[in-house]
Design a protein around this nucleic acid. Structure first.
Lengths: 234, 234
DNA sequence: GAGTGGTCTAGACCACATG
DNA sequence: ATGTGGTCTAGACCACTCA
């Protein structure tokens, strides 16, 4: 019996009640004391559960008053998260077309991946389509040394990160992304179905595993109808 | 004596040692037990201090091994934070030119600010200049009702948020931002010194106070040499 | 095996919000 | 005045890492 910690259990129960609507936005949660009694657990353990929900912005605490489900607008979707492309963009059907080859990357890419100038990478170029219209081109480089086998595996549902996780044992944990704008080159214009020199959203991302080792560098070009959404905190 | 909580004191001490370099990246911190003894405090209190540093990504824990200062590359600047424009862009000299007037905003802006169709706002248009070259145009709307006095106050160092905080008692706590691309209109091209139809980074932001009430809606157009940088987590 | 962080207890006193 | 969350104690057992 792989027994989860009690604070995880409590957090899960409260999360279920919040997402199911049994605890609607602004509703008061049971007090810490009451939860402690209900779960036959000490108050510190209840606080661990609530701490997690507060960090996830689902709950706010008010000293002297109680803990409350966060107002809807404070929740703001799954922002600043690394999510598969499909989840990023609505509910429409997402398809992916792939080109893949093994090659030595440009020097700038080798540098951010902390590779020597001659190390090989798997280069993936994907065309993402949403509801039938082309939305984005993504070009990724993954060091061959980091993910042996990637060159010979099919991508799981077009998702590089799922493939790295389930086929190569590499868990991407965080990434830094630069977002800017550019004019469509002739090639991008053709792929994305926009006029040459049309404005595109250009992004450059470096993804890392938990240890901090870089495992992917990617560039993407997206039609402006598909903006990036970011949450900022003070 | 406004006595800070002990876990804040401990966190502060460790933070100082990390930023001063006394505890360099990858260095092992004293064990929780040792810190507890040193500060004459229980281990749970030490853990509160370490929890905070872990959330700030300055420290990583390894069960059975110890707690360590996070590797440099995992820290990644002050990302996903609401910072004054000057802090966003390097060390260059930033100047600001301001136009300000009171007017009823477009319907789309009124809606996100949760205002009636006839409510007035302070509209600020700022031209941001970095090292002498124009970098961005920012257009902000702030409800007059939320910030009475804003219409008659000078901005503190060109910063709307500092002014709201120090002159109007409004603490902006978080914002949601949409980033996309557009082609420079004739007017933007003139202000930013780029050709007409040149690609620009376009962003739309709604900022909220802690209570969740929206206090600003802003749009900005930035030359692509000044990208947005975002950190994403799994 | 010794030391580390992960989880948990059963209390306590305090500052604060609300009726 | 009552009840809430904020802070803190002085222990405990466990799972894990490392020498």
């Amino acid at each position: 019996m792989a027994t989860r910690p009690m604070y995880e259990v409590i957090r899960g129960d409260l999360l279920d009640q919040i997402t199911a609507g049994a605890l609607p936005p602004e509703a008061r949660l049971p007090s810490e004391k009451e939860l402690a009694e209900r779960y036959r657990v000490s108050r510190m353990t209840v606080r661990q559960a609530l701490d997690a929900l507060v960090r996830e912005r689902l709950v706010v605490r008010r000293r002297g008053a109680g803990s409350f489900v966060a107002p809807q607008r404070a929740r703001s979707r799954r922002l600043n998260r690394l999510v598969p492309f499909g989840d990023e963009v609505s509910e429409d059907v997402v398809t992916t077309e792939i080109r893949r080859l093994v090659q030595v990357p440009p020097a700038a890419v080798a540098r951010v991946l902390e590779l020597g100038e001659t190390a090989e990478t798997v280069r993936l170029v994907r065309l993402r389509t949403v509801g039938g219209t082309p939305a984005a081109v993504q070009e990724s480089w993954v060091p061959v040394a980091a993910a042996p086998g990637l060159a010979r595996t099919e991508l799981i549902e077009g998702s590089l990160y799922r493939t790295l996780a389930e086929r190569c044992g590499i868990a991407v944990s965080w990434a830094e992304q630069e977002i800017t704008a550019c004019a469509a080159t002739k090639e991008l214009a053709g792929l994305l179905g926009v006029p040459q020199r049309a404005p595109l959203v250009e992004a450059h991302r470096t993804a890392h595993e938990g240890s901090g080792r870089p495992v992917e560098h990617a560039s993407s070009w997206t039609r402006p109808e598909f903006p990036f959404v970011v949450r900022l905190d003070a």
